[in-house]
Design a protein around this nucleic acid. Structure first.
Ligand SMILES: Nc1ncnc2c1ncn2[C@H]1C[C@H](O)[C@@H](COP(=O)(O)OP(=O)(O)OP(=O)(O)O)O1
Ligand SMILES: Nc1ncnc2c1ncn2[C@H]1C[C@H](O)[C@@H](COP(=O)(O)OP(=O)(O)OP(=O)(O)O)O1
Ligand SMILES: [Mg+2]
Ligand SMILES: [Mg+2]
Ligand SMILES: [Mg+2]
Ligand SMILES: [Mg+2]
Lengths: 429, 429
DNA sequence: TTGCAAACG
DNA sequence: TACTCGTTTGCAA
DNA sequence: CTCCACATC
DNA sequence: TACTGATGTGGAG
């Protein structure tokens, strides 16, 4: 029992930074997760990665020791100047909405099979789940968890295979609704988007009760409403499922909101950043503000600028236009594969699939990247940039097969034992 | 590591009383088995049963303490008298053969799919294997092991589903061969029979090289040859796979053979009897002879008579006629089932299946037995004997459903949570 | 330009 | 037996 | 007669 | 998430 209390140091533990994961028996859940994982290659790799993170922390703490009061004072001054600048530009005039469907894939499946409504269920396979409904989340079952572990947590869990096309179809219906409110809305994924409601409100002078009544009844659509994207995003998670949260557009409300906000809730601050910050005594955003001078000395410019903005409750108050894609890739996991011919023919197949996808969007790219994951879950990428853009399967394969051959030849001990292969194209120009 | 060395006291450990299980890494195997099982309801039940056996041993050891030299002497005298009697009747004139196919189901599947020949494979499912080929046995994979554990022991194991009809068909071909040598042979299972070769040898004056050359090439058919059934059975296991063993028909040869024979090798002495005997310092059959007086005081008459015969290398020198069946039953394991209607309708189905089977053999029986196993693997049987024999589904169900209802009503806490149900008929007259 | 780690859904 | 896939970003070499 | 434990394949 | 199913024997109550 004791051993699972140390969960903070253990990568395998339940990641409960997710709606619907509050107040469940974490010890029991972590025990089951741990016992299902311990000894597996996956687990060993996670342990290795965790150690690397710990080393990173050690290095950071050493650096911290070197910092003098002098340094800190100077840094503090610079931070203060920047705060003034940022406050000057603070914009509370916009109304930014972040919409994010509840348990999206699961909701679609439940719509199509109402039997599932009162059951704990998840979408995916015995190997991997991409989401679960809220009933299942009560058991600790969540996205990115393998189904066979989820089944141990929740023996009655129903696992429905993924129907990506359905989700894409529902998504496009949802987006039509979004467009009614803000034609320039920014989709972030199939189930989620930022909308600038400012104009709509000026015209209508009133809030819609809910987008829900209009749109396809697959899923409820809770919103987060706030003066900028960063805050709206946090807010949309707040009353999940099935609710919304509006943060008033005043500096006081914003600062109070941000004060006790755990850093991990902020989009962009993940597990590792959280751990780094925790090591410095920072867990909430108010701590961020208090330690900005230190942070400016320990982190990169982009990183501490971001932290500073977060600590002030700042974020983008306008929604950028949708950007063109920068890369396209395809990858596949399979049972251990060591035979050269088999690997080569799989590589060819991946190139064909990728070429197909490129064709659909009429794209050509100059950089071909081969991705390999061996049976110990160690990932490698090998890239080559050509002087001309390519798009066909043959062109891509010509590059990829050489990259693969080099890796096979250099592998020791022989042979190269793979569990995943992937191809990527970028540099579209 | 250490903990798995204590395997003698642990029910879950690999049962290696099986051909092809010699000289493999038992510690590693037991570790995997244990880690796959620990904490499961199955495991908990095994632990409970093991404790009961231990209590039985404790009781026996207490009884042993009460025994005086007097008792022992008297017992020794009785044993000695019986030895004289038995020796008088010792019959070394018959040639008894026990034939037992190698890895029978697996051999049939390999015959039908030669791809499998060089692979470790087993017959059954992820839940249960009924046998494995010798390649797989090298990994500790064997009959009565669940497939999912076998897969951990041997990731490349191929599991092919059971085709019982095929095995029955092959079996009947084999039996035709058997009949050529002894029309009164006694089949013990699909792949195994006792034959009395005495007459055949008197006529032919020579041994067939092998039955193998004659019969269907599904499986090799190693034999054990000895002057009685008990010894023949032990011998047939000796040179598995693919060999045979003949024990000469002299008292000396027999006694030497028996001397170092582990009691567990004797048919009828299983895991529990072995453990009881071990507690008395008995592991080989020679020990049996040395401690017969003690055994006659601690075990039932039938039991110690059996032990005495074994210790003298005695057994039946003639093969009894095939007996009529005494019972017929059908049972099924399923996912936890608690709802009354569901249980009832399953019970009806089982009765129908049983009635069908009874009809095929034109049988009627007076005793109906309901078998239940709850989700903790605890087994109950409840029987009722009628004054008249029954055979139809309705008749059987009329009894079974009442037996079931009683159990449901008496269960506490409610409800009755089942994992298996079965029906049996006996008392055919 | 390359390779990797982190993050997100 | 079974621990994803597609995409972006940032950092360091 | 009933129930259970043990054993076999 | 998955630990059988058919049959027989013996012993105790
Ligand atoms: N780790 C993942 N791997 C693959 N697909 C994922 C993953 N996480 C999420 N998805 C897919 C399935 C989700 O339904 C969909 C939207 O993601 P997201 O909004 O984060 O969760 P969700 O909509 O299922 O639940 P909720 O938003 O209520 O927490 O994207
Ligand atoms: N525990 C069991 N449960 C179900 N079926 C079994 C079990 N044990 C054996 N069988 C079936 C499958 C076997 O092929 C067949 C003959 O059993 P048996 O002769 O003991 O083993 P085997 O023929 O497979 O291997 P071998 O005899 O070489 O040790 O009976
Ligand atoms: Mg969502
Ligand atoms: Mg989302
Ligand atoms: Mg056999
Ligand atoms: Mg057999």
């Amino acid at each position: 029992n004791f051993q699972y209390m140390e969960e903070k140091n253990i990568k395998m533990a339940l990641n409960d930074n997710k709606a619907g994961m509050e107040g469940l028996d974490r010890d029991k859940i972590n025990k089951i997760i741990m016992e299902s994982s311990k000894g597996s290659k996956f687990y060993e790799n996670e342990v290795k990665r965790e150690q690397q993170v710990n080393q990173r922390i050690d290095k950071m703490m050493l650096q911290k020791e070197q910092i003098t009061e002098q340094h800190l004072k100077k840094a503090q001054a610079q931070v203060a100047r920047m705060v003034v600048e940022l406050e000057k530009r603070r914009d509370l005039t916009r109304v930014i909405v972040h919409v994010d469907m509840d348990a999206f894939y699961a909701a679609v499946e439940m719509r199509d099979c109402p039997e599932l409504k009162d059951k704990p269920m998840a979408v995916g396979s015995m190997s991997m789940l991409s989401t679960s409904n809220y009933h299942a989340r009560k058991y600790g079952v969540r996205a990115a968890m393998p189904g066979f572990i989820a089944k141990k947590l929740c023996p009655n869990l129903v696992i429905v295979p993924t129907n990506f096309d359905k989700y894409r179809a529902v998504s496009s219906e949802i987006r039509e609704i979004f467009a009614d409110y803000d034609p320039n809305f920014m989709p972030m994924s199939l189930d989620e988007a930022y909308l600038d409601f400012t104009e709509h409100l000026e015209k209508r002078q009133s809030w819609p009760d809910s987008l829900r009544t209009h749109h396809y009844r697959a899923s409820s659509n809770p919103k987060g409403i706030a003066p900028n994207m960063m805050l709206a995003k946090v807010c949309s998670d707040k009353n999940k499922p099935n609710g919304q949260y509006r943060l008033p557009s005043t500096r006081e409300a914003v600062m109070e909101f941000v004060c006790n906000l755990p850093v991990r809730k902020v989009s962009g601050i993940g597990k590792v950043s959280e751990k780094l910050l925790n090591a410095l005594g920072i867990s909430s955003c108010s701590h961020l503000g208090q330690k900005m001078a230190l942070l400016s000395l320990l982190f990169s410019e982009t990183a501490w600028h971001h932290f500073l903005q977060v600590s002030l409750g700042l974020g983008s108050a306008f929604i950028p236009r949708h950007e063109e894609r920068k890369s396209m890739s395809t990858e596949r996991t399979f049972k251990e594969m060591s035979a050269a011919e088999e690997q080569l023919s799989l590589c060819r197949e991946l190139c064909e699939d990728l070429a197909n996808d490129l064709k659909k969007e009429g794209l050509k790219g100059k950089t071909v990247t081969l991705k390999l994951k061996n049976v110990n879950f160690e990932v490698k990428t090998r890239a080559l940039t050509l002087s001309y853009p390519v798009a066909t399967a043959d062109e891509i394969f010509a590059v990829a097969k050489d990259l693969l051959k080099t890796e096979r030849d250099n592998e020791s001990p022989q042979p190269l034992r793979l569990r995943l292969m992937g191809n990527q194209i970028k540099q579209f120009n």
